[in-house]
């Protein structure tokens, strides 16, 4: 018995060091492989965009982002984003409230339907909108009688972007609101707050970071959406070109420096998105430890 114990103890003392050595070795290899992999797949492409953009000097760069076609594309992208993000935010809040605060039949189905746009190819999203709003579509004749052009114009691009970015805000809010629970809101209501007061003073402060996070993701995707918008825009220069479509045209015309210059603007926005996201996460962590 006694010798057994001693033996076991000896093993125990010996073992951790062996494991530690092994871990140190695997740790180094794994970290190195990860660095290499991420450098090749993420870092090099990101750096490369800026290198290419400035390849022919800053004169060409600024000319590329300040000519009238580029400015029109930037304006259209901004307009589309400014319409899409608020609408999808309202939808996201409504959907998250509905799903996390009430019990009803078909809830699981509704959840799946909200996520549906993520599973549909953007090209198909564009196609179905062409079928629906096009001249042969269900709504096409109605809108053309009213004199509203949807296809190959700004409304079509907005709707396509709304389709593709619809789930973002809802998806971020649902887990946050689920975790929060509804006790605080119930307390507010039973103490006599109106629905709006409850929302502004209780719900909103609780969900603000998740909401902001969903909105910046929605924003990033709205700026960058290509497939769906490409189908529906008709690509009329200066009229229906968003920034990604402008990049495509420049690239196909072999104006590589100009294409990368406009691309670099969108990359800056992407970096900004990632920075805000990291900041939100850092805040949430700090709040948790505090």
């Amino acid at each position: 018995m006694a010798t057994d114990l001693v033996k076991n103890e000896g093993k125990h003392i010996h073992k951790p060091t062996a494991v530690k050595k092994e871990t140190n070795w695997t740790k180094r290899v794994l970290i190195t492989v990860m660095f290499l992999y991420l450098s090749i797949f993420l870092l090099v492409p990101l750096v490369y965009i800026f290198v290419k953009a400035f390849e022919q000097g800053s004169g060409v760069y600024f000319a590329a982002i300040t000519n009238s076609d580029a400015l029109d594309a930037i304006k259209l992208t901004l307009l589309v984003t400014l319409i899409t993000v608020p609408l999808n935010t309202v939808f996201g809040i409504a959907a998250a409230w509905l799903i996390t605060r009430f019990q009803f039949k078909g809830k699981q189905l509704l959840l799946s339907l909200i996520e549906l746009p993520f599973a549909v190819s953007p090209v198909i999203a564009g196609l179905v909108l062409v079928l629906f709003f096009g001249p042969r579509g269900v709504m096409g004749p109605l809108f053309s009688e009213l004199g509203i052009k949807i296809l190959f114009s700004t409304p079509g691009i907005v709707i396509a972007t709304m389709f593709v970015t619809l789930p973002f805000v809802a998806r971020e809010l649902i887990p946050v609101m689920q975790a929060q629970g509804k006790a605080e809101e119930e307390a507010a209501i039973s103490l006599g707050a109106s629905g709006w007061q409850m929302f502004v003073r209780v719900t909103l402060p609780n969900i603000k970071w998740g909401l902001l996070y969903g909105m910046i993701l929605c924003n990033a995707r709205a700026i960058g959406e290509f497939g769906a918008v490409s189908v529906i825009s008709g690509r009329i220069r200066g009229m229906t070109n968003t920034m990604p479509l402008h990049v495509e045209i420049l690239y196909n015309e072999y104006q590589f420096s100009a294409a990368f210059a406009v691309a670099s603007l969108m990359s800056l926005l992407a970096i900004l998105t990632l920075t805000i996201k990291a900041w939100i996460e850092w805040r949430a962590e700090k709040q948790q430890t505090a």
Partner: peptide, 15 residues
């Protein structure tokens, strides 16, 4: 590195 992982979500696909 952790922040960089999300780059493909944030970067426009055409870019």
């Amino acid at each position: 590195i952790d922040g960089l992982i999300d780059l493909p979500f944030a970067l426009p696909t055409a870019v």
